[in-house]
């Protein structure tokens, strides 16, 4: 048998976002809420340790063998975007070993705002920010924030503690996304968790009936190279240059 042996293909759902925003927690929540409705698997991407896999296994949200770690050699963005072979094989192995699976969730290693999944790896992706990272992050834009299938603004229960106006942050995000969906989430607010589950059901539904079109959020955030910036980009598309790197 070779790797090319086709088996039942699941919806492949990527979860990206900066370090510590709650990617693993979002995955744990989805597993806990939907495991009786969908057959699920999880692939994590780790930078130094297998912390994410350990966290998810210890949370007991899925049988341990359905949670697998890909080691990324300190290149989380490469593993989800430029060279997805390790992740692709982890997903395909999982689909074969537990066929038929409905959804495989792939957690990206926590990375910067420009790291998004390749459409060669996932069918849809959600991008996770949190209020603790600052209310202005949503305004910074970038491919994940602007064009992921869903933008999650997590830990809204913390808003008052970090002086972030959650409604304002959600409105900024909606503006950055030209109306694409934004979900304010807290695991302490059941109605937000229900909304997350509804979104997953809807994306699985439209993927299964063939009406979902995978989109590529794109590789790079709008950026700026210095005071005399008049260059053009070699990566095949033009974009505005108004956000300094930070």
């Amino acid at each position: 048998m070779t790797d090319e042996t086709k088996s039942h293909r699941a919806l492949r759902l990527g979860v990206a976002g900066p370090v510590g925003t709650g990617k693993s927690s979002v995955i744990a929540t989805i597993c806990r809420q939907l495991r009786d409705e969908f057959a699920l698997g999880v692939v994590t991407n780790d930078i130094y340790t297998d912390e994410d896999t350990r966290f998810l296994k210890s949370a007991g949200v899925l049988p341990e063998e359905r949670i697998r770690a890909v080691e990324t050699g300190a290149c989380p963005h490469t593993a989800i975007r430029d060279d997805v072979t390790m992740n692709l094989m982890a997903v395909e192995d999982m689909e074969r070993d537990f066929a038929p699976l409905d959804i495989v969730l792939v957690e990206s290693g926590g990375d910067n705002l420009t790291a998004t999944f390749s459409p060669a790896l996932v069918d849809a992706q959600l991008f996770v920010l949190d209020v603790a990272g600052g209310g202005d992050v949503a305004r910074k834009g970038g491919p994940g924030i602007a064009r992921a299938d869903l933008l999650v603004i997590n830990k809204i229960d913390l808003g008052p503690h970090v002086d972030v106006d959650v409604d304002r942050m959600v409105a900024d995000a909606e503006a950055a996304r030209h109306g694409a969906p934004v979900l304010a989430l807290s695991r302490h607010r059941p109605e937000t968790v229900a909304a997350l589950c509804d979104w997953v059901r809807a994306i699985h539904g439209s993927w299964a009936n063939g009406s979902h079109t995978p989109i590529d959020p794109g590789p790079m955030a709008p950026h700026h190279h210095g005071p005399k910036d008049d260059h053009t980009h070699a990566h095949g598309h033009s974009h505005p240059h108004h956000h300094p790197h930070d």
Partner: peptide, 11 residues
Amino acid sequence: GRLPAGGYAHS
């Protein structure tokens, strides 16, 4: 080394 076959994870 840019051949996308996952070699970057090893030292």
